[in-house]
């Protein structure tokens, strides 16, 4: 079915081509603040996933009834409700991780990626596409969080998901679990991402060029 492949396309774009962190550079606050270990990054990613998918679903379902003039306030009410649900659930189920993530769970409300998806996508598309888009975007967000959290935990503590990797003699890179390490690692990841994208574009151009030449040659 044609529509299925385009729904799939909406999901896949968030993972890489329109990645909310690496390409749109959105949601920087949780990105920098809570990624000092892989587990924190994953939990924050899951919380964002839940909030974004839920809000996109609701916004897309009720878009006919949402008046344009108050749409932002309504989006915020919807998002904030989901965030509160996540906040209390984490506090009850995973108190240790809630302590680590602390103030950043309530701050998911202010994650501009979530509001951005409601405004740019969910309010204009039907439920299926909105949910697919939300899944893709939060998936991309989670990939970025996870990448940053893994690098910082491996270098900063010498562990991965709390499992010691290098033995007791490992010299931990203290800066990596501090805020400057977040900025440094994110900058380097962005550098790498852009370098890779550029390389890929150049390569595709080259391929296209040689194809064209082959076509021209064959034409003669």
């Amino acid at each position: 079915m044609a529509t299925d492949s385009s729904a799939y396309e909406e999901m896949i774009k968030g993972l890489w081509r329109d990645n909310p962190v690496f390409v749109q550079v959105l949601g920087m606050c949780p990105m920098l603040a809570v990624t000092n270990s892989a587990i924190n990054a994953v939990v924050m990613g899951l919380a964002t996933f839940f909030v974004l998918v839920g809000s996109s679903f609701l916004v897309s379902s009720f878009k006919q009834w949402i008046p344009k003039q108050v749409r932002i306030s309504l989006y915020i009410i919807i998002i904030a409700t989901f965030v509160t649900v996540v906040d209390y659930s984490l506090l009850a189920l995973l108190p240790a991780i809630h302590k680590e993530l602390g103030a950043f769970i309530p701050l998911i409300v202010a994650n501009c990626m979530i509001l951005g998806r409601q405004e740019a996508f969910a309010s204009k598309h039907n439920v299926k596409y909105a949910v697919m888009d939300a899944v893709g975007m939060s998936g991309g967000f989670m990939i970025a969080l996870f990448a940053l959290g893994s690098v910082r935990e491996i270098l900063g503590v010498g562990a991965f998901f709390g499992i010691d990797l290098f033995g007791t003699n490992f010299e931990s890179w203290v800066i990596m679990i501090l805020p400057p390490g977040g900025f440094l690692t994110l900058g380097l990841l962005l550098l790498f991402f852009n370098w890779f994208t550029e390389r890929r574009r150049e390569f595709l151009l080259k391929v296209a060029e040689s194809d064209r030449m082959a076509y021209v040659d064959g034409d003669k």
Partner: peptide
């Protein structure tokens, strides 16, 4: 500065 922030004890 990087080294001092990264390996403060060493």
């Amino acid at each position: 500065a990087f080294l001092l922030g990264t390996f403060p004890i060493a």
